[in-house]
Design a protein around this nucleic acid. Structure first.
Length: 704
DNA sequence: TCAGCTCACACTTTTGAATAGC
DNA sequence: AGCTATTCAAAAGTGTGAGCTG
């Protein structure tokens, strides 16, 4: 096992959700559900972060943008309350994260990571048609990061296609050795995507951006709780096609099968008892069907087990339909057993092995697109529903929507969070907690327009005002008991129907402007103190990917035998969310590190809020996932969950914890079937040495 | 008793090896 | 011999529901 332990460097540092893009300048989600929270936010605090005056060396930094291509699908789920199945063996996410990147330096290499962090400290239960916080969250598990299999790849590569993380798997197996992302069931999570510049060997993170799409929040379950979610999954996931109305595994069909089985059993019994329905007519080939050949004989010694065996045998043997007896052939299909996935631990060697290539490639110029770069990549039918269908009806970003309000007590349904007047500053905040090993998550959204009213809208009012009040939504102190997801402005049935139609229309046009289809992310600017500019106003700090000096945390990618200062460190973004409008005194706890230098965020309109998302063609290619990073310890403590019914007045006290960071561990090798760019990375498996440091031996994989 | 979890099941899509044809 | 297209079986991804567990 690799001693892949800590990478104290590469700290993302304090980050915030702030650089969301707006479509049509309209709020995407209904206003808040927590008026109190919004009120608690001083107007000045609601203002976007100031533009940093420090000149940005490179223009790229500000231009890095990410869009969620299948945001429509996500929002469909989000409007109901997304649930993600987690299993011991690992379950894929559906919908998957389908992203579009822009603003990268085409010639630089980047690594894309996906991680999933808890939104709050609560455990949820589905009650009364909605999700309610019922207690404190379980101890935080080691964080794992899913590395996109194409990583590292050039900016040109990432920008030339749709980036999919659908190979990432979620598990509730805390002892998982497959590298899946480990989550607790019945907890609420927020996926995040990180783009890290890997310009060469030991210098990762020349630029680093993190993106959050609030609509991708979900609650983990081991079995679906909400029928609406089940229906959505079945209708949109091709693998569940069999459960559709017309599918062979539909309720109807299953019931029919059940009846047939019962009929067979009954028939068998009848046969044994000399039932008039002559089974011999149904069993023309007794030689090949021992069970059948045996049935005619009403052996008095036949036991219950015998009958069962006979029944099973008869079921397995194709039987001709016999209207008179209600029989229809029902050949049992062979159930393929799952082959245990081989460990996919991506040891440090993986990274180490890549480094030389990366360095070389960089020197050679822009990396050529790989085979997977074929423009006409496969587009998953599963996501087709959501892709390219997002219309202007779904203004993104600011709006953006934290469809899952990080309210411990409730996911407000549309109506409940419709207060258009509430502050729009999207704030995903995880209640801080003192509980060790738990992590506080705080997301800060761009400041919304001033709100006029704090009155929560009625629950489940899809047609409610489209304005979205993130701050309120995020308030964990909301007394609301319903944990429904925040509503989407356009998700009334009529609206949804219309959108679906539009979606269909758009789906037929691959060149539709995704601008109206995609949801852009909330960006977590690079938090490093040295890059305050980026942190405060990413779009205004064109430093990303440029030849700027690597900030301390970016220079810290290291391997076991490297010094701690060289370690790759991916800080927990949940702590990185910058609270633009909260004073340090309101922080539940002090950050373990380093982010004291984080500058306060003065009121200022965020430039990106007005920027319409770029248009992209919807191109996708299959990915093979399987690389995971593991965040071990150094997980900041989280304060205990608040009582379910805390007065609204307390809503804003703990939303902006300082940013802490924790090390990042690599834990997976690429999937054996990995057929893409990363393949070559695993050729180097032993004792790599590099001018700047030695590499790990991949022969042993890091298993966590 | 019951909420939550596990597992086998029957379905589906995806993948890749084998084969055929040029 | 080499390439491409087709076929097919296995693998893998779904939700369901029964049974188990604490």
């Amino acid at each position: 096992m690799l001693g892949v332990d800590m990478y104290p460097g590469l700290a993302l540092g304090p980050q915030r959700i702030g650089d969301c893009f707006y479509r049509d300048h309209e709020p995407l989600f209904p206003a808040t559900c927590d008026a109190a929270a919004s009120k608690a936010l001083p107007p000045r605090l609601a203002a976007p972060p100031p533009v940093h005056s420090e000149p940005a060396p490179q223009a790229q930094k500000d231009d890095v943008k990410m869009e969620l291509e299948n945001s429509f699908l996500w929002k469909q789920f989000s409007s109901v309350g997304t649930e993600m199945i987690i299993t011991k063996k690992g379950r894929r996410m559906f919908p998957g994260m389908k992203l579009k990147l822009s603003g990268l330096n085409p010639s630089l290499r980047y690594i894309l990571l996906l991680d999933i962090t808890p939104v709050d400290n609560s455990r949820y239960r589905f009650q009364g048609g909605g999700w309610q916080a019922v207690g404190g969250a379980e101890a935080r598990l080691p964080d794992r990061v899913f590395i996109h299999p194409d990583s590292p790849a050039t900016g040109a590569h990432w920008q030339s296609r749709t980036i999919s993380f659908h190979y990432a798997k979620l598990t509730n197996n805390t002892l998982d050795s497959q590298g899946h992302i480990i989550l607790h069931s019945l907890h609420r999570y927020q996926p995040r995507v990180h783009v890290i510049e890997a310009r060469d060997m030991l210098r990762w993170g020349g630029g680093q951006h993190s993106f959050v799409f609030p609509e991708t929040q979900f609650i983990t379950v081991t079995a679906y709780q909400n029928n609406k979610i089940t229906e959505l999954k079945i209708s949109s996931n091709p693998f569940a096609k069999g459960f559709r109305e017309e599918g062979m595994n539909s309720k109807k069909q299953r019931d029919a099968r059940q009846k047939r089985k019962l009929a067979v059993l009954t028939e068998t019994v009848d046969i044994v008892n000399g039932d008039p329905c002559d089974s011999t007519q149904l069993l023309p080939h007794p030689d090949t069907n021992p069970a059948v050949s045996a049935t005619p004989t009403a052996d008095p010694n036949t036991t219950g087990a015998d009958l069962q065996a006979l029944t099973l045998a008869s079921l397995q043997a194709p039987l001709p339909a016999d209207p008179t007896c209600g029989f229809t052939p029902d050949v049992a299909r062979f159930q393929g057993t799952l082959v245990p996935e081989q460990p996919l631990d991506l040891g440090q060697a993986f990274m180490a092995s890549q480094m030389p290539d990366m360095g070389l490639s960089m020197s050679d110029g822009m990396q050529e697109a790989t085979g997977s770069e074929v423009t006409n990549a496969i587009i998953e039918s599963s996501d087709s529903l959501g892709e390219g269908t997002f219309s202007s009806s779904f203004p993104s970003a600011q709006t953006s929507s934290p469809s899952f309000a990080p309210l411990p007590q409730s996911f407000p349904f549309p109506a409940s969070s419709n207060d258009p007047t509430s502050s729009s500053s999207p704030t995903l905040s995880t209640p801080s907690s003192t509980s060790p090993s738990m992590q506080s998550t705080t997301f800060t959204f761009p400041t919304p327009p001033p709100s006029n009213t704090a009155s929560p809208q009625p629950l489940l009012s899809p047609a409610s005002s489209p304005s979205y009040h993130p701050a309120a939504m995020m308030s964990r102190h909301t007394a609301a008991q319903h944990t429904s997801f925040p509503p989407l402005p356009c998700q009334s049935q009529d609206q949804m129907s219309l959108l679906m139609q539009q979606d269909d229309a758009l789906s037929n046009n691959s060149n539709n402007s995704p601008t109206e289809q995609n949801s852009e992310a909330f960006i977590y600017p690079n938090p490093d103190p040295t890059q305050v500019n980026a942190l405060l106003a990413p779009t205004q700090n064109p430093t990303f990917g440029a030849s700027y000096a690597f900030p301390p945390h970016m220079q810290n990618l290291s391997f076991p035998n490297m010094t701690s200062s060289q370690a790759l460190h991916l800080s927990n973004l949940s702590h990185q969310a910058q609270a633009p409008f909260h004073t340090p005194s309101s922080l539940p706890f002090q950050p373990p590190s380093c982010f004291s230098s984080t500058p306060s965020l003065p009121p200022a309109a965020h430039p990106q809020l007005a920027n319409p998302p770029p248009s992209y063609s919807s191109v996708e290619f299959p990915y093979r996932s399987d690389m995971m990073l593991h965040h071990p310890s150094l997980i900041p403590q989280r304060e205990p969950p608040l009582p379910p019914c805390l007065p609204p007045s307390t809503a804003t006290t703990a939303i902006y914890p300082p940013f802490s960071s924790y090390p990042l561990r690599l834990c997976q090798d690429p999937h054996p079937s990995l057929s893409i760019p990363l393949r070559h990375l695993y050729r180097h498996q032993h004792g790599h040495s590099h001018p700047q440091g030695s590499f790990l031996d991949v022969s042993t994989r890091a298993v966590f």
